[in-house]
Design a protein around this nucleic acid. Sequence first.
DNA 1: GATCCGTGGCG
DNA 2: TCGCCAAGGAT
Length: 354
Amino acid sequence: MAPAPSPRLRPALLQWFDRHQRDLPWRRTSDPYAIWLSEIMLQQTQVSTVVPYWERFFERFPNVRALAAAPLDDVLGLWRGLGYYSRARLLHRAAQAVVSEHGGHFPPTAEELRALPGFGRYTAGAVASIAFEEEAPLVDGNVARVFSRWFAIEGPPGDKAREELLWRYAEACVKGERPGDWNQAVMELGATVCVKHAPLCLLCPVSAHCQARKEGREHALPPARRRAAPKEMRLYCAVTQKNGAVLLGRRENKGLFGGLWELPSTPVLPELSALLGTTKKPGASLGTVERVLTHRKLTLELYPLPAPKKLPRPSAPYAELKWQNVEALATLGISAAMQAALKVALPAHGKARR
DNA sequence: GATCCGTGGCG
DNA sequence: TCGCCAAGGAT
């Protein structure tokens, strides 16, 4: 078991949290649905990005039953631009499981929540502690950074022994009054004071308890992780129009951009015509759009193709091919990368919307 | 268990 | 410009 922190740490941090926490919409409620939605959106995503998405989503789907009853297409339409789209698909599946298996009510323990789609160790602990006041530990990027400084924990992010140690500290620390606020307070400190670069130790309410600061190593902990360079990926996209509509494909519900709509695309240019069920050849390139994803440097190259007389049956990676009205492009589930490509492909449309 | 999965902000 | 990063989970 990890050594217990100083008994003065908890009240000092909670008092700071009470005074300095940011006013966020999901902090004005104890509704587990609202809190869960925020936790999924916040995965690998900054608060300022999430707020408008959360508000739109919560207004459209105000409870778990409304979400469960919605078509996945509508869910992805509201998620568009937020990234990591499997989160939205799992969110939808979890909502349906809550309705079908739990009568529309979230189970109140981390252990039970963990069985739902999209609930990992972190999210289960977050919802259990914040919505249900269970003394459930959690470790996210903020907690890992804060703890690595408080307790001078060595090792790079991803190191297995380090991760386990962090969870043991989290378990030891969360026990006591207000476990949900405690977890949020540690994350809030990490997000606003104990930041990666240039931590604001002079503003920190618990700097006296920080081992890294005692040793003058707050800038050195935690060590940076190494990342592999993104791999290049080039996709050739078909720009095909007919009567004010654009031919789009909806990807299968897996992998990159799973479930989203896009210009039919293939990594092999000569296969583009077959994808649309035509023997006509693409015209001259209309241009390219580049986007850097976590593991890929994505290049989309746009080619005009004449409309086929009849749409073929969709083939992998597409589950559906459909003529979509240009107006629908504003709300369909479309990745940010493909939205940028569509602006190039349909400049008149892009200008009309501005 | 290593890899995959988006996006926008920032130094 | 560019690498790094942010309230992770699934496979």
